[in-house]
Computed example of a mutant assay.
Amino acid sequence: MNPYILLMLAIISEVFGSSMLKLSKGFSKWLPSIGVLLGMSSAFFFLSQTLKELPLGVAYAIWSGVGTALTAVVGVVLWKEALNVKKVLAILLIITGVIIMKLSTDMS
């Protein structure tokens, strides 16, 4: 399977797991707690499959960067967390870093 599709699945799984972590209320709610375990274990499984074809630095930069940015967006949209100029700038910097990391690998 295409490593970027696997990486996308890893990112979606991680964002799902993180969202369930908030709902689990410190693992006191059992159904969201199961969601955390499923989401995070799926994320690491898909990431491990991605690493068969992609360099670790690139895969991890994309996984963590895009995952962080998407989790921040989920926080704003679902949990009504504050969105301000600093948060938008931080998300844009993360995305820029991921793009530069990917481009630096393609050029070598």
Rank of each mutant, 00 (worst) to 15 (best):
M20L: 05
F44W: 08
L6P: 00
L21A: 11
K87C: 01
G67P: 02
P32G: 01
Y60A: 11
K52D: 15
K52A: 12
A72Q: 02
A82L: 09
P32W: 12
I95R: 00
A82I: 13
I11W: 08
S24D: 07
G65S: 07
A72W: 06
M20Q: 14
L93S: 05
L92R: 04
G26K: 08
M101N: 10
I95M: 13
T50A: 00
K22I: 09
V77N: 00
E53G: 14
S28E: 12
L47H: 08
M40D: 03
I62T: 13
G57F: 07
I99M: 13
F45N: 00
F45L: 12
N84E: 08
M8L: 15
F16W: 13
A90T: 14
V98M: 06
S42I: 08
I11V: 15
E53D: 14
L47Q: 07
S28V: 06
A43N: 05
K22N: 06
G97Q: 08
V85D: 03
I100Q: 10
T71Y: 01
S48T: 10
A59S: 13
L56K: 10
S28G: 05
V15Q: 10
S41A: 11
I91P: 00
L51T: 01
P3H: 09
L38G: 10
A69K: 04
I5T: 13
M8N: 09
E53S: 15
E14P: 01
W63K: 04
V88D: 05
F44G: 05
E53F: 13
I99F: 11
A69H: 01
S104H: 06
I62S: 04
K52C: 03
L37Y: 12
P55T: 09
L70S: 07
L23Q: 11
V88R: 00
I34A: 10
S24R: 03
K29G: 04
Q49W: 05
A90M: 10
V76C: 03
L92P: 00
M40T: 11
I62K: 01
S13I: 10
W79N: 12
L56M: 15
S64Q: 10
S24M: 01
L6E: 14
L9H: 05
S41H: 02
G67L: 04
I62Q: 05
G97R: 12
Y60I: 13
A90D: 02
S19N: 14
V74W: 00
G35Q: 09
K22D: 11
G26N: 09
S19H: 13
L70Y: 02
L31K: 11
G75R: 00
I91N: 01
M20A: 11
F16T: 11
L21P: 06
